[in-house]
Amino acid sequence: VGLVSSASTFTPMSRACDAVGEAPGRPGINTLRLERSIVVEPKMLDSLRMVRDSLPNFGRSGRQSDNVKVANVTFRAGERPGYSYEPNPKDVANILRNIRRGKQFSDFCIFTNHGHEPGNWSEEPADYEREFAHQTVDAGADAYIVHGPHRLRGIEIYKGRPIFYSLGNFMMDDLRTPVGADMYEVYDKDLVDVTDADVTVSEMSSGYETSPGFSDPVFYESVIAISRFEENRLAEVRLYPVELGHSKRFANRGIPSVACAAKAEMILDRLRRLSEPYGTRIAFENGVGVISLRCKG
């Protein structure tokens, strides 16, 4: 079995870097860099252009380009407001090459990506991801698996290969110590009266500027997917619903257990809804989700 992994969500200095001249290479992760832009309505873009032209060091160019950059954020016009991503061509080429190499030396090659885009709040993957997932399968990946969004997203079957746009959390534990003094300041906690656990609870419930936190039960609901192949083609995927104890006290949350019947039906119904846009049909069999491809060519 071959495994190729990458990350599209990462801190700047965690990326592996090649050596150049006298500068040594830097160990790190295999990244998929993304260029993000914010899509707005055309009239909003006109307003942003006025803001840009009024700022110091920005002259009135008179150009009516289809995008505007303000404070290092790129905005462009579109029909559906939201976030758009353009993957780095060099990173894509490098990843696809490594997948081909992995497949050449293995019977089964899995590709995984750690990415939160467009955010943990979204039930849909980022706009670039479906095309990229198809490219990885075309390059030799037998399965495409995303982790990072902390919630379930849809499942697609492409050329007899499963694409899991997110399987959510298998475990969810962020109760930690020690916590730095700056985290106390972020959540307005007193260094004398408050414990590290209090800060962590606030972090998990309040989130960050770009994340709503993890107070919603959906972050504690997932599935265990078992894929069965016959003659090198996917024959069936069985989806076993699990829940991670959202209603339990904080120290006991995050450990997976088999979901009760009502919870299992709710989890599978959500996953079925999210998978339908990809043409994926999920049947219910005794509390288990089943994707069957036996009758497909």
Rank of each mutant, 00 (worst) to 15 (best):
R76M: 07
H134T: 06
R26T: 05
P24L: 13
D193R: 09
L48W: 10
D173Y: 12
R15C: 07
A71Y: 14
R273A: 12
G82V: 05
D182W: 09
S47A: 13
F164A: 03
E131F: 10
K159I: 06
Y220C: 03
L271F: 05
A264C: 11
I155T: 04
P277M: 08
R153Q: 15
V68E: 02
Y184E: 03
N232W: 07
E22T: 14
R151V: 15
D91S: 13
P118M: 06
T195R: 03
G297K: 12
N94Y: 14
R63I: 11
L34C: 05
I282E: 00
L3V: 14
P149M: 04
P24A: 14
A259V: 07
L48D: 01
R273W: 07
D127Y: 03
L45N: 01
E124M: 08
R76W: 00
T112L: 08
L3S: 03
A235V: 13
I155R: 02
A141D: 01
A264Q: 05
L239A: 06
F229L: 12
M172W: 03
V242C: 13
D107T: 12
S61G: 15
G2Y: 05
A283E: 14
Y184S: 07
S166T: 08
I38S: 05
L152V: 06
E86N: 15
A7H: 00
P87Y: 07
R100N: 13
I99R: 09
V201E: 11
P27Q: 12
A264K: 01
A264I: 14
H150D: 01
T74I: 10
I110V: 15
G207K: 03
D66E: 13
S5H: 11
N30R: 14
V68I: 15
F58W: 09
I110H: 04
M204P: 01
L271T: 02
F250T: 11
E236W: 08
E86D: 08
R130S: 04
N94S: 15
R100E: 15
A259Y: 01
F219A: 05
S47L: 13
T177L: 08
D127N: 14
F10R: 02
G102H: 02
Y184Q: 08
G2H: 08
H114V: 09
I29G: 02
F132Y: 06
T200M: 14
F58I: 07
R294A: 05
A16H: 04
T74S: 07
M50V: 09
V192F: 11
